[in-house]
Amino acid sequence: MMHEPKIIGFLCNWCSYRGADSAGMARLKYPPNIKIIRVPCSGRISPELVLRTFREGADAVMVLGCHIGDCHYSTGNHRTAKRMPVLKKLLEYTGIESERLYINWVSAAEGEKFATVIKDFTEKISALPPFVETMK
């Protein structure tokens, strides 16, 4: 059963948030499900924030940052790349679909990639049952 998933996206200020702006400037269309929260760096996102977002009823969480090597803070996103895969594994071990946590890198110039990523991901998540249902 398809549903309208609730998605929270944590986007770094310098690359991914600007990438989302680029998608807008190019008037590329994508589903409205994602609500973007701007953070300075994807490295700012702690596992607690992601888990709390799920706890609040989000069907999925996206963490998007600068490409590895292009981080505005030099290597902040390296920590994202090491922290988030572990959290994905933990979700998997707990029986939660690990694809509900999505990590990727979108540069300021990649508006098109941003729109595609959001489109594909929203579609994928809407095919999963609502998260709160699975928690009942």
């Binding site: 953070v39 300075p40 490295g43 700012r44 996102i45 702690s46 607690e48 709390r52 803070y73 902040g76």
Partner: peptide
């Protein structure tokens, strides 16, 4: 950047203007 905040387990370090309270409230 706040990478330290993402790391600190007891959350003894915080990033001004991007505190956990602010981000959680936004979410």
């Amino acid at each position: 950047c706040g990478t330290c905040v993402g790391t600190c387990l007891p959350k003894s370090i915080s990033l001004k203007h991007f505190t956990d309270e602010q981000i959680v409230a936004e979410m």
